[in-house]
Amino acid sequence: MARKAAANAAKNQSPTNFPEFTAEEELQAYRDMLLIRRFEEKAGQMYGMGLIGGFCHLYIGQEAVVTGITMASEKGKDAQITGYRDHGHMLVMGLDPKGVMAELTGRQGGLSKGKGGSMHMFSNEHRFYGGNGIVGAQASLGTGLAFASKYTGDGSVSITYFGDGAANQGQVYESFNMAKLWNLPVVYIIENNRYAMGTSVERSSATTDFSQRGASFDIPGEQVDGMDVRMVRDAARRAIEHARSGKGPYILEMMTYRYRGHSMSDPAKYRSKDEVTSMRAERDPIEQSKKRMLERGIIDEARLKELETEIRAIVTEAADFATNDPEPDTAELWTDIYAPA
């Protein structure tokens, strides 16, 4: 069954049958991806200035994944949960860029009041559950979100992201087993950016087709071009529909790439410059989207420039806020440890 689903997916993605976007969808996707890109570039710069501390994992290069998936999900209803490379998820889900950036700088106006940092942000309202720092932990947690959906019958789907590195953690398979055993509405998104920190997929994984990692649990899976937002949205629709209709979990392996190091302090010696350069030149999700829009006459250079200015203004506002917002009050040291009685 798993293999059949993958074969269908391959057919859907044949070059003669691209899932096209409407003009409006192209624009929305472009805007969301550009916001992530510019936000992350700014975050990298602010890290360099010492305004952001500790670990900071940028999403640059992977923008199409979270953008396409969120387009296929029901905002405010479906839950999303990921690991520590989480800034992009929050921006696309509609969380305030000021709150995200201020959390990165550890200020009181941050989404977690400055107490979580880059890796720990959450929103009940937007149903975003982090922001989790332990590799693979979100696989079990996300399966629990799906359990709650089935228990209450609220019709939501849990969209649970993890990377190629986490895909080798034991609890991922404990979760796959329970998710299929109980047919929980969960879509596992494996963001395969080829490197678990500095170790390539080939050096870490006995089998490298992660979409088939659910085969022994009878969970269908597909490999998807994670650099093309249209492909991502298309596959996500299939997967989410599968989960929502009561058929249980689904795996999407997103073939993607991060341009930056694993975290800010990663010298990226484990891959060649050419690899990064050719990926950026040929596969960049934002450039592809821009090119398509220009070719289809959806947008012109002047409007592109305006859009760029708009996005930069949002990012600059976020950065200014995050730079000038005060650090949390020292009394916050002792709050939020125990729930109010």
């Binding site: 839950a79 079990s140 399966t143 629990g144 359990f147 228990y151 034991g170 609890q171 404990e174």
Partner: peptide, 25 residues
């Protein structure tokens, strides 16, 4: 529905439980 036998999978069902608690159970 409310009294659930799990597989022998402590790490997984502990995490699943925490996720369900995040979602209000």
């Amino acid at each position: 529905r409310r009294i659930i036998d799990t597989p022998i999978t402590e790490h997984g069902f502990a995490g699943l439980g925490v996720g369900a608690a995040f979602a209000g159970l």
